[in-house]
Design a protein around this nucleic acid. Sequence first.
DNA 1: GTGGGATGGGCAA
DNA 2: TGCCCCTCCCACA
Length: 289
Amino acid sequence: MPEGNEIHRFAERHAAALAGGRVSADSPNGAFPDAEVLHGRKLQAVEAYGKHLGYVFGRDMILHVHLGMYGDFREGTMPLPPEKGALRLRLWNRANWVELRGATDCSIFDAEKWQALLARLGPDPLRPESDPEPGFAVIARRNTPIGQLLMDQSVFAGIGNIYRAELLFRAGLHPRTPGREVPRPSIASIWKDARKLMPLGMIDRRIVTTLAKDRALKRGPEADQDRTRKRGAAPVDQAIPHQRGLAQDDEIHYVYRRHGKPCLRCGTKIEKEEMAGRTVYWCPACQKR
DNA sequence: GTGGGATGGGCAA
DNA sequence: TGCCCCTCCCACA
């Protein structure tokens, strides 16, 4: 379900709710029998790298969670809610609980396995210390389309299908452009844009990438104050200038899942195609090779 | 009620 | 490249 931005948000929230003390753990659907190994242990920290989460219980006891396409968390304050659905894992303390469903992976890593995972991930735009150069270098020598390279977690970690499409639109770059033909300033600006856009991404659990000036919907200041969810409209954060104003469902993205609809900038029909098993979307007029 | 698709990735071949 | 994992949601009947 989520891309890197939401994974990092989960890490922050789960650390705030549960880290620093002992937690209880169980696996109501039995799909994570190691829950009993974690039960009663102190959760030291929660880390996010790309789309991977690590719940650190010890040097050789890191709970690795990858949500994949279907996985999701729910969070709340005690008491635990009634058990519902296929519940893989619950973690809780006296104050808070976290539930995990549908994850691609939920298993305990030792230090070696955790390091091996990190070693195969490229720089993560959401980690301030990330050096993008290794990612730039890979792109500069590959003939693979840039649309495919942006989805490759060993090039950059954390970018998913929505940000792939939207970053390319914002850069004016056609997804089929071979990596080695992407000008250095273009890829540098995509990295910079990802650094800026991804932390601001989630509005009402949706990613909003469009500028207010590109959205048809214009509202007065009083509407801007309205933070409640309206059917089909996402309230956006006043503190984020590029997201000022409400965003209708079909204008929270420039191209992602907008195939056949007019481009928000130029009116040309958005196109789509399969690229390495995933659908990529672009505006044939705004995005050039 | 049903069926297809989805913000992902590992694996076999 | 295609298959699997195995969950939720929406459009459509």
